[in-house]
Design a protein around this nucleic acid. Structure first.
Length: 310
DNA sequence: CGTCTTTGACCCGCGC
DNA sequence: GCGCGGGTCAAAGACG
């Protein structure tokens, strides 16, 4: 995937052109203003302050350059990781196409799904697919072969992803901060995991068909496994409050199990929402960096001075 | 009073 | 037909 098409992180500070022109031009302008011999002493003082300012500016600009290089490095790493993840998922996708199929449906729901083309049928469709259900999926595949139940293509495309959240071992609530509001509608103890599984629907249901299941990992109880089904058709109510530490940080990993990370196939709305959240997170983390804010301030002030000269 | 959580009952598909 | 297991419903209670 071309990362540049996904998210443009260029801040376009344009500080390099500023570096070359600003310090050289400033004294010339000052000479014109202070042409009178009576102001020679004042000029010397100004000259000293200008040289100090110039040094400070050079220092900040060099920091700015370093930060820009760091940012580029981080972005390259992000792109490389993204491509690697995409490769892994594209290898998995043929299997996932078989695995992630709807299985059990209530009689009334199956009737509805025949008449409702998008396959969501008021959020009542049931896609029992989670990582821990693999033994069951083999049975599902048999059912698929028998083709007892027609499956719509759009349903197959229902986005299913799994996210891992750090969990406090003493905290028994199966809630995770992902920026959206959820309504719990059930809880069940499953056979292959001693901890209960919680079922959530998006608070915007039935207009939003997204559901999620949250359960502690059987292997590592300190990890909450959240399985998302479907795509939000609205902005997150707390999109700006998305737990940045759990998403930007290294501890939360989200895997798109259906689309295989093919963002080109993502809906436009989804991509825009994603970009918005990413930009907010990036801006949030950058503004916490005092060096970056100093460099940014220098760049802006330099640009203002440049404009005032023209 | 509206919203959310809890939890037992129920539904459904599947294997025996 | 029966039991099992996963998923959902919906009444009751909690909470702000």
């Amino acid at each position: 995937m071309d990362c540049s098409s996904f998210l443009d992180i260029s801040l376009n500070l344009n500080t390099n052109t500023l570096d070359r022109s600003f310090p050289a031009k400033l004294p010339k302008k000052e000479v014109k203003v202070s042409n009178s011999p009576n102001l020679e002493r004042n000029w010397l003082v100004k000259d000293e302050s200008v040289s100090e300012l110039r040094e400070e500016l050079n220092r900040v600009n060099s920091e700015n350059k370093k930060l820009t290089e760091k940012l580029a490095t981080v972005y390259e790493s992000y792109c490389a990781l993204h491509q690697y993840l995409e490769k892994l998922q594209s290898r998995q996708s043929p299997e996932m196409d078989q695995i992630e199929q709807p299985t059990k449906k209530r009689k009334q729901d199956s009737d509805e799904s025949l008449s409702i083309p998008n396959g969501f049928s008021d959020g009542k469709t049931d896609n029992s697919s989670s990582n821990e259900d693999h033994h069951h999926h083999h049975q599902q595949n048999n059912q698929l072969i028998s083709c007892k139940r027609p499956v719509t293509d759009s349903f197959n495309k229902a986005k299913i992803s799994t996210a891992y959240f750090p969990a406090n071992s003493s905290d028994t609530s199966l809630t995770v901060k992902d920026g959206y509001q959820w309504r719990k509608y059930g809880q069940k103890v499953t056979r292959d995991n001693p901890s209960p599984r919680a079922y959530f629907r998006c608070s915007f249901a039935p207009s939003c068909p997204v559901k999620k299941k949250v359960q502690r990992s059987a292997e590592d109880p300190s990890v909450l496994v959240a399985t998302y089904e479907g795509t939000h058709n609205h902005l997150g109510p707390n999109a700006s409050e998305v737990d940045a530490t759990s998403h930007v940080g290294s501890r939360t990993v989200t895997l798109d199990m259906v689309n295989g990370g093919h963002s080109l196939a993502l809906e436009k709305n989804e991509r825009e929402t994603m970009q918005e959240v990413l930009v907010q997170q990036m801006a949030s983390s950058l503004t916490k960096d005092s060096k970056f804010t100093a460099a940014l301030a220098a760049a802006i002030s330099g640009r203002l001075m440049e404009q005032s000269r023209t």
